[in-house]
Nucleic acid binder design. Structure first.
Lengths: 263, 263
DNA sequence: TAAATGTTGTTGCTAATATAACAACAAGGT
DNA sequence: ACCTTGTTGTTATATTAGCAACAACATTTA
């Protein structure tokens, strides 16, 4: 092909992920500029080989991105971008719905209790995925929930998830500060979480507890929220006895030191 | 590959249009069934060659569809389908937003008056696209709007579009019946539109005006809504003098005959 | 202990498919 | 006779699919 000229590369990528090929994208973009072009004109403004332009235009008409005139030679015009993108998304969303349904049927075939479990440590990527797992942990809590988390994490939606915890479950939250109302049924402990780096006192820096948190349910299941500022957060989840033991010690030690330093 | 077994074919297609390859889809589906599988187990349940399973799993982790355990050997688990599909859609929607923005900038570069025009007859596919065009016609009407349409079309959203017509514009609607309130500013004419097929009286059948309509704005721009029941509707749009002339005669003749038959 | 076996994770190569690009030509209009 | 449109093939190129071989490590067996 000649030169795709001044077309931002990510635009082509975006259109590809909406189901267009490179040619389809180029032709559509070209048609946005000229309006009512013949196939040859489309070929000229898009840089797509003339012979390839015909099948591409057919597909674009099929996808409801361009309309055709009833003349000879045929003339083509692009559907306005917002409408065009919407037309593409409609198909994709129907596919998504179909996939969701079918996958869910497969997912439910196996009993819901077979999942997760075992003596493993899982890593979960993505904030939404972590919250999903947390929500499930809270929902299935039977005796106790312990939370050790920076305020920003709680405010960022985690606190809301705790509403699903059964009333009969003992909930303890350790955090650095907590504006807004405090749900009375929770045991709240405000403590300075940022701890001086004692073991390796590089520059006397503080190790802040930002975007991080530790969650322990029924002394049996635990989740470590590992957030590095700016980046995509990840988390460790485990039901392993050893790992749970480690987390219990961590919560105890942080709480104790924080309490000592705070008083 | 061995046998993709009992996987509905459209599921693979749907997942592909969400940005997965065949292998990625198969592995994800396989993981929904087993939970906490090793790479080899994934290979067995998905039918994907063992050597290919590793890069595929990497990509799925990247796409937030599976999570990994910190053991040797590594174990993998699928995120629940609704969450997984949502994760995929998030990326696509951000691409759609990006594309929409960038395309719109390109679209607006050329003056809005260069569009359409000329002595052409355009065919528009898809109900939404037709409505968009209709809306624009109504919005830009300066003197008159004439509508000849079956009731089902008006009720299906077309009537709502007429609210955008300027108050100074004369609006005449001819239709077979019109339940609900009638906007007083419009001239409404209720006439039996279904006409006997006189020219070719095959079996004395009626030619109903279903899902069809004729729209004429300022005696200069016209749109023919061609709806065949069940199928995707299409439309002809034109500013050609000859075509407009034809449509004016059509409206006049249908109205007159209907009026005669009705009285 | 040492060899045999087996599994995991990697690398590199080949085959199949979809997309991109080109050449050639029939039909029709000027 | 010339040019343009629209169509049909055929050839590249890129992506995806599939395979074979191997090093690292663990497990078994002699």
């Amino acid at each position: 092909m000649t030169a795709p000229r001044d077309i931002p590369n990510n635009l082509l990528e975006s259109l590809k992920s909406l189901g267009l090929t490179k040619y389809e994208a180029l032709v559509y973009i070209g048609l946005l500029r000229v309006a009512g072009a013949t196939a040859t004109e489309v070929h000229e403004t898009s840089g797509v080989p003339r012979a390839s332009v015909y099948p591409v235009l057919d597909r674009l008409v099929q996808k409801e991105l361009v309309c055709v005139s009833h003349t000879t030679p045929k003339r083509f015009d692009a559907v306005p971008p917002d409408r065009g993108v919407e037309n593409l998304m409609r198909r994709i969303e129907s596919d998504a719905e179909n996939a969701r349904k079918t996958l869910d049927a497969i997912y439910r075939e196996k009993g819901p209790e077979v999942r997760g479990s075992q003596e493993l440590i899982w890593t979960i990527y993505g904030e939404e995925n972590i919250k999903t797992r947390l929500a499930e942990m809270f929902r299935r809590a039977e005796r106790s929930v312990e939370v050790l988390a920076a305020n920003d994490l709680l405010e960022g939606g985690v606190l809301a998830l705790l509403n699903d915890v059964l009333g009969s479950v003992q909930v303890d939250i350790v955090t650095d500060r907590l504006p807004g109302e405090r749900p009375s049924r929770f045991g709240i402990h405000i403590l300075p979480l940022a701890a001086p780096c004692e073991v390796h006192p590089t520059q006397g820096k503080l190790l802040p507890y930002e975007r991080s948190g530790v969650f322990l349910v029924d002394d049996a299941r635990t989740l470590l929220w590992l957030g590095s500022s700016g980046e995509q957060p990840s988390a460790l989840y485990s039901e392993s006895a050893g790992f749970v033991q480690f987390v219990r010690r961590h919560i105890a030690s942080v709480t104790e030191r924080a309490r000592a330093a705070g008083q």
